[in-house]
């Protein structure tokens, strides 16, 4: 399976350059760095920059650090900024305003939960999504807990074109890393695919299903061209993501 360790930063700028960059702004340096570490597991080729804490290492946000991070994250495809608490958003928005005009427009400061939104944005960026799609992925974190699943029966009425039901066999089920791999694969197909009624291209929706080993997943497409996507995703689930079997 292809889920090796991320390549060392600085040796791999070409792939990074094709992806939207991310900045995580937190009052705590360790929180921002920890989120980079977490997100890198799912987005090894995306430029992820931490901007946490004040210049003297305290709790707060540093305008200089955030400004530098915005520049460093700029791959030319845009930058999405996630923040923890209020003043982090204000600092990020101010730093954005001070950028040169040509780079400012590509920088989006998103008001979304830092960890969930950051991870969702990282996975979207890794899949090559454009900056607005990465913003949408981050913002999807705002409502992951309330979005109801679309009942599978309802889809049956509205014309399933192809479906497969598979059982999770790997020991930890669809936890973060397998879910990210699943979503990345789904994003390589244009067809709309759902898993138990949830969007297969949304990391947070997939993780929200909390599918454990032994759970079954109904992978469905309503698109006439979606068969290959469903098969690829079903095969991936059946492969066990290269993990130990339950």
């Amino acid at each position: 399976m292809r889920h090796g360790m991320p390549e060392a930063r600085g040796t791999n700028h070409q792939p990074e350059a094709r992806r939207v960059g991310l900045v995580f702004v937190s009052h705590s340096a360790r929180l921002a760095e920890g989120l980079v570490e977490l997100a890198r597991q799912m987005a090894p080729s995306t430029r992820l920059i931490a901007a946490g804490g004040t210049a003297d290492g305290g709790i707060g946000t540093s305008f200089e650090a955030v400004s530098a991070a915005l520049r460093e994250a700029n791959t030319g495809r845009g930058v999405v900024v996630l923040c923890d608490l209020g003043s982090a958003i204000l600092t990020a928005a101010t730093a954005r305003d001070f950028l040169e005009e040509d780079s400012r427009d590509g920088v989006h400061v998103v008001d979304a939960p830092l960890v969930e939104g950051g991870v969702a944005a990282a996975v979207a960026a890794e899949s090559g999504a454009d900056v607005l799609a990465v913003v949408a992925a981050a913002e999807s974190a705002r409502q992951t807990r309330v979005a109801p699943a679309i009942p599978a029966a309802k889809e049956a009425d509205s014309g399933i074109r192809y479906a497969r039901t598979v059982t999770l066999t790997n020991v930890s089920g669809l936890h973060a890393r397998p879910a990210a791999e699943f979503v990345r694969l789904a994003n390589t197909f244009p067809a709309k695919v759902t898993v138990n009624g949830k969007d297969a291209k949304s990391l947070l929706s997939i993780m929200g299903l909390a599918l454990m080993a032994g759970s079954s997943a109904e992978i469905v497409t309503l698109d006439a061209s979606g068969e290959a996507a469903v098969d690829a995703l079903a095969d991936l689930v059946e492969s066990g993501f290269g993990e130990e079997r339950a």
């Binding site: 004040t54 210049a55 305290g58 707060g60 946000t61 540093s62 305008f63 200089e64 209020g86 003043s87 204000l90 600092t91 928005a93 101010t94 305003d97």
Partner: peptide, 15 residues
């Protein structure tokens, strides 16, 4: 102020 306050007041008073 923007560079040194380090809380919400920096961007607010600074802007």
């Amino acid at each position: 102020l923007i560079s040194t306050i380090g809380g919400a007041a920096g961007p607010l008073y600074g802007t």
